[in-house]
Amino acid sequence: MTDDFAVRCKGCGFTWNTPAMADGLRILGACPKCRGDLEFGTRGAIAPAPVAPDVAAAAPHLVLGLPRI
C-alpha cells in the first residue's frame, strides 16, 4: 500500500485523500463505512488554525459588510 493518503481505514482499507476529509473523520473518530479504526497519513496532518483578525481594530464596514440602502 502507498503512504500517500490523508486517512485510511484499518478495517475495510478505504482511503480518503484530502485534508478536509481528514478533519471530518477526526471528529467522527471511526470509519463511516464499517466503523473501523482510522489511520491518519501524511496528508491528514493537522493544519495550523487560521489566525482570527482583530475585529476590535477593524472598521465597521469591514466586519459587517456594506450597508443596505
Rank of each mutant, 00 (worst) to 15 (best):
A22P: 01
P48M: 05
W16N: 03
V7Y: 05
G24K: 02
E39F: 01
G29H: 02
V63Y: 08
T18F: 09
I69W: 06
H61C: 06
A52W: 12
T42E: 15
A59I: 08
G11I: 01
L62N: 13
W16G: 03
P60N: 14
V7I: 11
A57H: 06
L64C: 03
K10V: 09
A20E: 15
R43M: 08
D4K: 04
C9T: 05
L28V: 05
R68F: 08
L66S: 12
N17M: 05
A20Y: 07
G24H: 06
A59F: 07
G24W: 05
F14C: 01
F5E: 07
I69P: 15
A45K: 12
L62A: 15
M21V: 01
I27S: 01
D4W: 04
A30S: 10
L66G: 11
I69S: 13
G11R: 12
I46A: 03
F5C: 07
G36N: 05
A52L: 15
L38E: 08
I27T: 07
M1T: 10
R43I: 12
T15V: 11
A20M: 11
A57M: 06
D23L: 03
D23R: 03
V63R: 15
F5N: 05
D37L: 12
D37C: 01
I69M: 08
G44S: 07
F5T: 05
R43G: 06
L38I: 04
L62W: 10
G41K: 04
D37M: 10
C34E: 04
A59S: 14
L62S: 14
T2M: 01
F40H: 05
D37R: 13
W16A: 06
A6R: 03
P48W: 03
A30I: 06
G29E: 01
L64A: 09
V63L: 14
I46Y: 00
L28Y: 01
A47W: 01
G41P: 07
R43V: 08
P67Q: 09
P48H: 07
